[in-house]
Computed example of a mutant assay.
Amino acid sequence: MLVSILITFLVVILVLYLINLLPLDGRAKQIARVVVIILGVISLLRYITV
């Protein structure tokens, strides 16, 4: 369980880093960051509740 939480956290950080490298405008980057963070939190909550 701890390993899956750590992997999820690292994947979220990696995706946020990659979004930062994309040549998008500020609004699109902000929306993408919010979506990734929400999905990451939902995934972490799923691991915690199991």
Rank of each mutant, 00 (worst) to 15 (best):
I5T: 05
I42Y: 08
I19S: 00
V34D: 12
T49S: 01
L14I: 05
R46N: 07
I37K: 09
L24T: 12
S43P: 00
G40S: 03
S4I: 06
V34C: 01
P23T: 05
R33L: 02
F9D: 04
L10V: 04
L44S: 02
Y17V: 05
L6Q: 08
K29A: 03
L16H: 10
L14R: 05
I38F: 11
T8K: 10
L14E: 09
Y47I: 03
Y17H: 02
Q30S: 15
N20A: 12
V15C: 06
T49W: 01
L16E: 12
G40Y: 06
L21M: 06
I13L: 13
L6V: 09
L18H: 03
I42N: 08
D25K: 15
I5L: 13
Y17E: 03
I48S: 01
T49Y: 01
G26D: 14
V41H: 00
P23E: 12
V34A: 13
L10I: 12
L39G: 08
I37W: 12
L22K: 03
L39R: 05
R46F: 04
K29L: 03
L44H: 00
Q30W: 15
V34T: 13
V35C: 08
T49K: 00
L24V: 11
P23D: 13
V50G: 02
A28L: 15
I48A: 07
L10G: 07
L2T: 07
V15H: 03
R33I: 04
